[in-house]
Computed example of a mutant assay.
Amino acid sequence: MTLPAHQPPRTTGGTVAYVGSRTTAERSGQGRGIEVYGLGPHGDAWKPLQTVELENPTFLAADHTRRFLYAVHGDFSYISAYRIDPDTGLLTALGRQETGGRNPAHLAVDPTNRFLVVANHSSGTVVTLPLAADGRPGPVADSLSLPGTPGPHRTEQTGSKPHHVPFSPDGRFVVVPDKGLDRIFTLTVDPMSGRLALADPAPSVQTRESAGPRHIAFHPHLPYAYTIDELRSTVTTYRWDARLGALTALQTLPSTAPAMSGDSRGGEIAVSPDGRFAYASNRSGAGDGSPGGPEPDTIGLFAVAAESGVLTPVDWFPTDGIRPRFFCLSPDGHRLYAANERSHTIVAFDVDRTSGRLRPTGTVVRTGSPVCVLIL
């Protein structure tokens, strides 16, 4: 771990952004690891505070006390843990732990703060790791292989490829989009043992062939959820049965603009805190191996129907960069930050509170290969 010579403090209660990146030559990475920034009062003055040099910290998550930060390391086989200084937001390493699989892609902390759930993307498993009171992760408590038949895409669907492991809004289920099997699984986690199980009687829902479901976002107060489907560049609306943990497909729409004619891959999806809008990112080009372009990468805006939950396309906004693998909304929903992996920028947008439309603020953070932004 390498820290800068000067680490400016922040005031207690200030906002900090943690940026994960790709660092390896195999991924054309130009990042250095986790970059820590102090944000100004309006989220438009990103001040570098710390660099933690690591290999491919490609997704980040905090525990529910916001005292600890966890990172998966894409293309490797471990996660790492850090203590968050409550006054400065700076990170101190607590160690790493193997995940029992390859290429961990996403992680989440269970509602009890006792377990970390990790998706091993390349080996098709979801695992749990116990968390000690001091934030340190222990060895794998349980591992579950996801069952099913791979989709027809010859290179992207060679087997199970879980990509996302968020908890449902009530914390009872882990919902797992599997890009390789064209399925979305619902799992339970035993809060005492960390044992994983497929939900009964609704363990999974089949998606469209070659959809490649990547990430899922729940509506904040209605019984609906939305996926970004990577391989088809579509957005699918589902009804969510919180009692059974069951998803029922209602609608599928292109995530790209009607005039988009080239290759594209879906990246990220989010629902605004007020539940009125959904956003989805589109990465031009045929997969991670392509340089991107020539068409602009965009974030699509969709209006959410207040009663039915279905989406209506509104507009598409260029991200002013290449390969928005990730974006996030600020906690109040007034800003959106697009992480352009291949052009090495995080671009800030104002979110119009009435229309949901995006407008660049002029804030552009230049950082190597950003692929995740966590704002605390």
Results as ranks from 00 to 15, higher is better:
Ser123Trp: 05
Gln7Trp: 08
Leu146Ile: 11
Gly89Cys: 13
Ala270Tyr: 07
Leu222Arg: 15
Thr128Asn: 05
Ser261Phe: 07
Ser168Pro: 02
Pro139Asp: 12
Phe317Ala: 02
Gly362Asp: 13
Ala246Pro: 15
Glu26Met: 07
Arg232Cys: 04
Phe317Ser: 09
Leu69Asn: 09
Glu341His: 07
Ala306Leu: 10
Glu230Lys: 14
Pro152Ile: 04
His221Asn: 15
Gly368His: 10
Val364Phe: 03
Lys179Ser: 05
Trp46Gly: 03
Phe327Gly: 05
Asp200Trp: 10
Pro104Met: 01
Asp288Met: 13
Gln30Thr: 11
Asp110Lys: 03
Pro273Cys: 09
Ser255Arg: 09
Pro223Phe: 07
Ser145Arg: 08
Arg154Cys: 11
Arg67Cys: 00
Phe317Cys: 11
Asp297Ser: 10
Val371Arg: 02
Gln157Pro: 01
Leu60Arg: 04
Asp320Glu: 15
Gly124Asp: 05
Ile269Phe: 06
Thr112Gln: 03
Gly31Tyr: 05
Phe173Gln: 01
Leu146Cys: 07
Gly292Cys: 03
Val235Trp: 05
Pro139Ile: 00
His164Phe: 12
Thr125Ala: 08
Pro139His: 09
Pro296Gln: 01
Pro201Thr: 04
Arg276Ala: 13
Leu222Thr: 14
Ala348His: 07
Pro213Thr: 01
Glu26Asn: 08
Asp190Phe: 06
Thr23Lys: 13
Arg10Asp: 07
Glu53Asp: 12
Pro213Trp: 02
Ala25Lys: 14
Leu231Tyr: 11
Leu91Ser: 02
Thr58Ser: 15
Asn56Ala: 05
Pro220Val: 00
Glu307Met: 04
Ser123Pro: 08
Thr23Glu: 12
Gln7Phe: 04
Ile269Pro: 13
Asp110Thr: 00
His106Ala: 05
Gly245Asn: 01
Asp75Ser: 14
Asp332Gly: 04
Leu244Val: 09
Glu230His: 04
Thr158Ser: 13
Asp297Thr: 13
Ile216Phe: 09
Leu253Ser: 11
Pro48Ser: 14
Phe68Asn: 02
Leu329Ala: 08
Val117Ile: 06
Gly43Ser: 03
Gly151Thr: 00
Tyr78Leu: 09
Pro324Ile: 02
Thr125Tyr: 09
Ala202Tyr: 12
Glu35Arg: 08
Gly101Leu: 10
His215Gln: 10
Ile322Ala: 06
Tyr82Leu: 00
Pro169Lys: 03
Asp190Ser: 14
Ser210Gly: 14
Ala197Ile: 03
Arg239Ser: 02
Thr2Val: 08
Ala62Thr: 08
Leu94Ala: 04
His73Thr: 04
Leu131Pro: 00
